[in-house]
């Protein structure tokens, strides 16, 4: 499978935070979900890909080109939504069209206004008066209107109501249909990623904890719930981490079928991505 995006051993050190040896691949036709706490390194990773910050070491390739030498060419084909930065709120969707058609060679007015119409955004109002959801839709419309091959989305569903959210998620699904495109999307709304992502990468304290196919996470992983007595019978190698609650232990296991064969414990739940993330962060080994 060909990768649209490839990050190798990315390191970036700040005073209070460090991105350590981040490796990440996004194959064509896939949606990669990037999850992690605030401050885990999601945005730093995304900014490194976009060459907004410069990595201390490691390399990043987009469309098989090194970002250091092909910055402009690469960005022509990337659509970007960044969490809280955009053009000035005193611009109208019409103004933005006037600006963007000079920015991207492949800017497509028709597509842009098609999105603006379908999102029911007023063309002639400044976006300061928009609701959060409308603002986000405007950003997404802009990101989609120059025929990008890769979408990089930082928290694209925050502030959206459920209807708008599913609308947007559908658009993302559609985007990757042709198998030539890909999406890297970071979110802490993990349920969104459960809907659309093909792969999940979990980043914590600047390190990649895992990259797994989403289905594998949801189908194979399990959360064992048991009392202290049973917990003591479990070997350390057979679970990832556990969390001790008031009345029971929650134990994250990588393969619930295997686990069931070995131990006689009744309750093994199918986890959500959020639960997996929580036990990884809060749990102990």
């Amino acid at each position: 499978m060909e990768n649209i995006l490839e990050i190798n051993n990315l390191c970036k050190k700040y005073e209070s935070f460090e991105l350590q040896n981040v490796n990440l691949c996004v194959p064509k036709g896939m949606i990669m979900g990037l999850i992690g706490e605030n401050g885990a390194g999601k945005t730093t990773t995304i900014k490194s890909i976009l060459n907004i910050i410069k990595a201390d070491s490691g390399n990043i390739k987009v469309f098989n080109l090194d970002i250091k030498d092909n910055d402009e060419e690469i960005k022509e084909d990337i659509g970007v939504v960044l969490d809280d930065c955009f053009l000035s709120e005193y611009l109208t969707p019409l103004d933005i069209n006037k600006i963007m058609k000079n920015i991207y060679k492949k800017w497509d007015e028709q597509i842009y206004f098609k999105y603006i119409d379908s999102f029911k955004l007023p063309k002639n109002k400044i976006s300061k008066d928009f609701s959060n959801g409308m603002k986000m839709k405007l950003k997404i419309a802009v990101a989609l209107s120059h025929h990008p091959k890769l979408l990089i989305l930082d928290e694209p569903t925050s502030g959206l109501d459920p209807v708008a959210r599913s609308e947007i998620l559908d658009i993302f699904q559609e985007f990757i249909q042709d198998e030539e495109h890909a999406i890297l999307v970071s979110s802490h709304i993990t349920t969104d990623l459960e809907h659309i992502a093909d792969y999940i990468t979990f980043i914590n304290e600047g390190k990649i904890v895992f990259t797994r196919p989403k289905d594998e996470l949801l189908e194979n992983y399990g959360i064992v719930k048991c009392g202290e007595k049973e917990f003591n019978t479990i070997e350390k190698n057979d679970y990832i981490k556990y969390k001790k609650n008031r009345y029971e232990y929650e134990i994250l296991v990588e393969n619930k079928v295997e686990f069931k064969k070995k131990y006689d414990i009744e309750v093994i739940d199918k986890p959500t991505i959020e639960e997996i993330m929580l036990i990884y962060i809060k749990g102990v080994k």
Binding site: N51, K75, V80, C85, F86, L87, I103, Y104
Partner: peptide, 14 residues
């Protein structure tokens, strides 16, 4: 104010 400086850096330009 709108953090446009950051956003502009995602444009295909130097």
């Amino acid at each position: 104010l709108s953090k446009s400086d950051e956003y502009i850096l995602t444009f295909p330009t130097t």
